[in-house]
C-alpha cells in the first residue's frame, strides 16, 4: 500500500467524522427546526458517504475482496435521507412549530390560509343537515 493511498484514506476517514461533528454542532447551534434540517440532512449523508467509501477501499486492499454492502449503504442513504428530512419538515410545519424570529418571508402560510378558507366557506351542506330532525325514541 503506497503512502499516497494511505494518506487519502486517512483523510477520508477523518473528514467523514469531522462532517458528522459539524452536523451535530449545527444541530445544537441553529435556532430553529427547519434550519437544523439543513445541517443534518446534508452533512450526515456526506459523512456516511466518505466513511463507507474509505471502508470499501480499505477492505479491497486488505484482502477481503469486493465488499458490495458498503456501496449499497451509500446508495440507500443517498436515496432516503432527503426524503426523511422533507417529511419531518412538512410534519413540523403542519404541527405549527414556531419559526425563528428572523424569518421574514413566508408564502406557505398564505397558501395554507387560502386552502383553509376555501374549505371553511363551503357550508352548503350545513342547511341540509340542519333541516333533518334527529329524534331518539325510548322504548
Amino acid at each position: 500500500m503506497t503512502t499516497i493511498n494511505s494518506i487519502l484514506l486517512s483523510v477520508m476517514v477523518l473528514g467523514g467524522s469531522l462532517f458528522a461533528l459539524m452536523a451535530t454542532i449545527g444541530l445544537v447551534r441553529f435556532p430553529d427546526v427547519y434550519c437544523r434540517m439543513h445541517s443534518t440532512a446534508k452533512a450526515s449523508t456526506m459523512s456516511i458517504f466518505l466513511i463507507m467509501l474509505a471502508a470499501f477501499f480499505f477492505f479491497l486492499a486488505d484482502g477481503h475482496g469486493v465488499n458490495s454492502r458498503c456501496l449499497l449503504v451509500i446508495v440507500f442513504v443517498f436515496l432516503t435521507s432527503p426524503v426523511g428530512a422533507h417529511m419531518i419538515s412538512k410534519a413540523a410545519y403542519h404541527y405549527e412549530v414556531e419559526m425563528w424570529i428572523g424569518t421574514t418571508y413566508d408564502e406557505l402560510s398564505a397558501y395554507n390560509a387560502a386552502l383553509d378558507s376555501f374549505s371553511v366557506e363551503d357550508d352548503s351542506d350545513d342547511e341540509a343537515i340542519k333541516n333533518e330532525s334527529f329524534s331518539v325514541e325510548f322504548e
Binding site: 447551534r29 441553529f30 435556532p31 430553529d32 427547519y34 434550519c35 419559526m99 425563528w100 428572523g102 424569518t103 421574514t104 418571508y105 413566508d106 408564502e107 406557505l108 402560510s109
Partner: peptide
C-alpha cells in the same frame, strides 16, 4: 449562525 435570514419561497 446569526447571519442567516430564513424564509419560505
Amino acid at each position: 449562525v446569526k447571519t442567516i435570514n430564513p424564509g419560505i419561497i
